[in-house]
């Protein structure tokens, strides 16, 4: 846990992150380019779903990111409330709009996939509805954090909301197993190994890695911005007094 506390110093963390940033960008561009190539050109069409299966390579990683970012934010909120690490709160606030963006991407690509496959843009089944709730949770968090005159209050209230909203994550994850829905069940993260062909798994995993790296890169950029915003607020206050 030592490195964890060592990195809790904002200046030290940002120095560390700045050194990491070019590597993340290079790796992200590499996996992203390979992912798009395999997803669009070098992978077979599905025997049932035809070419629309290619939407999966952006839809599924977006949905993973939507949940992953929420879990990251909730973990950050927990460590902010327990250990009072200010950086954890900075991370949660910096990640929120990105999480909302990925959720929206998952919803849009999902409905673009649903139209040719199910014949409808949207169905009110458990998976879709709970992802929509996730989207509202992101927006609610952003609204709550910004609703206070004292930013400290907003941070803490937001952190508690994030922890309360965590109940939605298992509901999303298991909704397709618990309810009979149009949405297909999970085919990658399963106990008995993925039930998906390797030629399709490769682009999926490449895209997922690229999305993760993109998020990491963006998180560093946004955290730096958030730290600067806080310093600006501080200087304004000391300027006034």
């Amino acid at each position: 846990m030592n490195w964890f506390h060592w990195l809790a110093n904002p200046a030290r963390f940002m120095r560390f992150a700045a050194r990491l940033q070019p590597w993340i960008m290079a790796l992200g561009l590499l996996t992203g380019a390979a992912g798009f190539y395999f997803a669009l050109f070098a992978s077979p069409a599905d025997y049932q779903q035809g070419e629309t299966v290619r939407i999966m390579y952006v839809h599924v990683p977006s949905a993973w990111m939507a949940m992953f970012i929420y879990v990251v934010m909730a973990a950050a909120a927990g460590s902010f409330l327990i250990w009072k690490h200010p950086l954890a709160d900075v991370a949660a606030q910096a990640a929120a709009p990105v999480g909302a963006g990925f959720t929206l991407m998952a919803l849009i690509t999902g409905s673009l996939w649903g139209q040719p496959m199910w014949g409808t843009w949207w169905v009110w089944d458990a998976r879709l509805t709970s992802v929509l709730i996730l989207f509202f949770l992101y927006l609610g968090y952003i609204a709550l954090v910004n609703a206070f005159d004292d930013p400290e209050r907003g941070s803490k209230a937001g952190a508690i909301l994030l922890l309360v909203g965590v109940v939605n994550i298992p509901i999303i994850k298991f909704s397709v197993d618990w309810w009979n829905t149009l949405h297909q069940p999970a085919s990658v993260a399963r106990m008995d190994g993925p039930s998906i062909d390797p030629s399709m798994l490769l682009p999926l995993l490449l895209m997922a890695a690229a999305f993760k790296l993109y998020f990491l890169y963006l998180l560093i950029v946004r955290m730096r911005g958030e730290l600067m915003a806080r310093r600006i607020r501080l200087l304004h206050l000391s300027d006034v007094s």
């Binding site: 509805t129 709730i133 509202f136 949770l137 927006l139 609610g140 609204a143 709550l144 609703a147 206070f148 005159d149 004292d150 209050r153 907003g154 209230a157 508690i160 909301l161 309360v164 909203g165 939605n168």
Partner: peptide, 25 residues
């Protein structure tokens, strides 16, 4: 939970509905 979270917030009445309604789905 929602009512306690928005204590002292601006436009608390609207905000509490925005926070709680998704959780009640």
């Amino acid at each position: 939970v929602g009512a306690a979270l928005v204590l002292g917030a601006r436009r608390a009445g609207t905000l509490v509905a925005l926070l709680v309604l998704p959780l009640t789905i």
